[in-house]
Amino acid sequence: MMPQDFVPVLLTFAVVGGFAGIALVATHFLGPKAYSPIKQDTYECGVDYIGDSRSRFSVKFYLVAVLFVMFDLEVVFMYPWAVNFRTLGTFGLATMGIFLVILTVGLLYEWKKGALEWD
């Protein structure tokens, strides 16, 4: 890997950003504009809306997100291990085994506590 290898990544970002920017500017200049009070109103699939979107959300969503981040990080650690799987051999397998056992304790805990149930 060299810095030059990341030019395609940079190009992708430029294309994505450029497309979004051009699409926004183009619709602003090309499309017809007709404002009316009904059109400016909040769109809720044709149903009359209640209150605004800034209502309070249940902590359950947050719990799901936190647990996702934990196991996301677990997989992050597994990637450099998998790349070196052959050279690390049994020792690598054992270390990853211990790591997974530690985190499986967490999984069992949340399972028993009912954190994986929605209600």
């Binding site: 902590v59 359950k60 947050y62 719990l63 936190v66 647990l67 934990m70 990080l73 677990e74 650690f77 270390t95 211990i98 790591f99 530690i102 985190l103 304790v105 967490g106 999984l107 805990y109 949340e110 506590k113 009912g114 954190a115």
Partner: peptide, 23 residues
Amino acid sequence: VFPFEIAGVLLLAAVIGAVALAK
């Protein structure tokens, strides 16, 4: 390897903390 396993314990603590607080 040791800091790596400690990171596992840290993640475990975070899981338990999140569950204990939210549940």
